[in-house]
Design a binder for these strands. Structure first.
Lengths: 329, 329
DNA sequence: CTGAAAGCGCTTACAG
DNA sequence: CTGAAAGCGCTTACAG
């Protein structure tokens, strides 16, 4: 007396399994009273179609994975966790409406065996070009889409993160005639950094200031950013604004400015990208960009489904990045 | 030419499907060179056992769900998101080592159909007694465990959140001879609030001060806490410390104290429970408690697996709550 | 309009 | 030691 099967339900209802199946799917007509009886019986017996059997038979998809290329339980500060999890929450909701379950993929440790992960599709979040998570899914023939273009993999469908536009929004806000704006991004070659750097170079040229960039290893987190900013601000007193896309780095910059006695925003203006709790609660609060992650997550799920079904995806419209001005600028 | 099946692989290797199956499972001896050949061929052909067929046949579990009773994409501020996601990250990792995938369950909307969610077990996070998520899984016969005891459901296995001990740690830290400590918790009847309130009453009696409690609707978030704290602090000038388990409420209290010109920690000491980003980044930073959520998450997964297998769970040892003293006290 | 039967891709008791 | 065959619980083309 485990869970009842379709056979048992059919027997109890005095019909064939075929009819029971159709009573649920509606794929062909079933006499209303018969249908009624079957459904009532089902609830009473606690019948639920075994999804494994259903999927095996129909070949339909049931689960998709969300994978971050960054450590999931970020030891070096939960900087990316908020970003990832905001996406996870939205993606889970969208997935549900498409009858899919969203599974979390823990980070690929050198020794970890991801053998258990068998999903029908995967969303990867801002991967680097040679991300192991990409080859993992590739090898098993699992359809992949990415949030943010994947450097070096033009074939992987992606939801555009509009990083150029995002960078421009920050830079235009930070700019004052005569300004020199600095840029601090991550060492890892993620597309968002690449696009930001490109937009920054262009902007500097247009405005006529000498660009100054620094790259920080993401693992180092806030502390690493603090050190770099200390050095940068000490040596380049003419820099009066810094664009720092990674929020954890941005708070490091704030700390460095404070150490050096540079008032924010009067002496130094700072803006970051992800408008998460970190930006909101920083002291002073950080000017950031609304990336519309809910739209991004939904679009990613849609894109993945289209890809799994070999459909040509309909480009989703994501709202343009919106500046959220706070005390840091 | 979709994915190869075990039959195709067997044919290619010149053996029976039986042998292929055993080559992978190791459930019975297969000639080393044969095994070698099969495995090599498998990688070359890109063969992966269809997990749906495997599970259907063996009846084994493959997925577990993590469900929050609170809105997942917390519209009213991401207060609980961090807490939940820290658990999600750890649980996903633990689940993986047990060959299980962790699925996120979006919040139960009145209109949402969770029909798609078919998991082998579920972990619910600090549910209230009559949580709809409980009856949802109950109805489908899905094994449930809870993080935090479920009020009114003594039969649901749970990982103890040690809320009494946590409350005591905060209270003992806040206490000074002659103090009067206030308490602000949530309206919802979660076990952690109940235990905290009980510990608080006891503590007040022992120390000989008159307890003063306020309850806030979780949906109201920081703003609601601000209003309540404003009123509370204005009317009870003798309250020189407040215990505020919910971090979003705690930052509201900080804001209220500032509005009233009450210096922290000299005039007023504040402590909160969850040591997340909010507590760390608040101004002043909030004294909080290390709840060892990684251990809690791991224990919950273990407990769930034991429950699914009808095994008697071995009580996991969670480290006692550890105070993290910061500037707010 | 309804049901018997084949088959999705595996695993494993059973037979040789 | 190895393989043929049954069966996990469904869905759906097919036959009546």
């Amino acid at each position: 007396m485990g869970k009842p099967t379709i056979i048992e339900l059919a027997r109890a209802a005095g019909v064939s399994p075929t009819t029971v199946s159709h009573a649920f799917s509606g794929h062909r007509h079933v006499e209303p009273e018969t249908k009624e009886r079957i459904l009532a019986l089902a609830t009473r017996m606690g019948y639920h179609a075994n999804p494994r059997a259903q999927r095996l038979r129909t070949g339909g998809a049931s689960t998709i994975a969300l994978a971050s290329s960054m450590p999931f339980a970020v030891a070096a500060g939960p900087s990316k966790l908020g970003f990832l999890m905001e996406i996870a929450a939205s993606a889970a909701m969208t997935a549900l409406t498409r009858n899919l379950a969203l599974c979390l993929v823990p980070p690929l440790q050198p020794d970890s065996d991801l053998g258990a992960i068998e999903v029908d599709g995967a969303i990867v979040v801002e991967p680097v070009g040679d991300d192991p998570i990409i080859s993992f899914f590739r090898n098993r023939g699992t359809p992949i889409v990415s949030i943010g273009r994947v450097p070096g993999h033009p074939d992987i469908p992606f939801v555009d993160m509009q990083s150029q536009a995002t960078a421009r929004v920050m830079l235009e806000h930070l700019w004052r005639p005569g300004s020199r704006i600095g840029l601090i991004t991550g060492e890892q070659r993620r597309n968002s950094y690449l696009e930001t750097e490109a937009a920054y170079e262009t902007f500097a040229r247009q405005c006529g200031f000498t660009p100054f960039s620094a790259w920080i290893n993401e693992i180092g987190g806030e502390e690493a950013a603090y050190e770099v900013a200390l050095d940068l601000l000490g040596r380049h007193r003419d820099i009066d604004a810094i664009c720092v896309p990674v929020d954890a780095f941005a708070t490091g910059v704030l700390a460095a400015a404070q150490s050096l006695g540079r008032a924010i925003p009067t002496d130094l203006r700072v803006a970051t990208r992800y408008d998460g709790m970190r930006a909101r609660l920083a002291t002073p609060s950080l000017t950031a960009v609304d990336l519309h992650l809910d739209q991004v997550a939904e679009a990613a799920v849609e894109l993945l489904i289209a890809t799994m079904e070999h459909r040509v995806p309909s480009r989703a419209a994501i709202s343009p990045p919106g500046l959220v001005v706070r005390n840091s600028s």
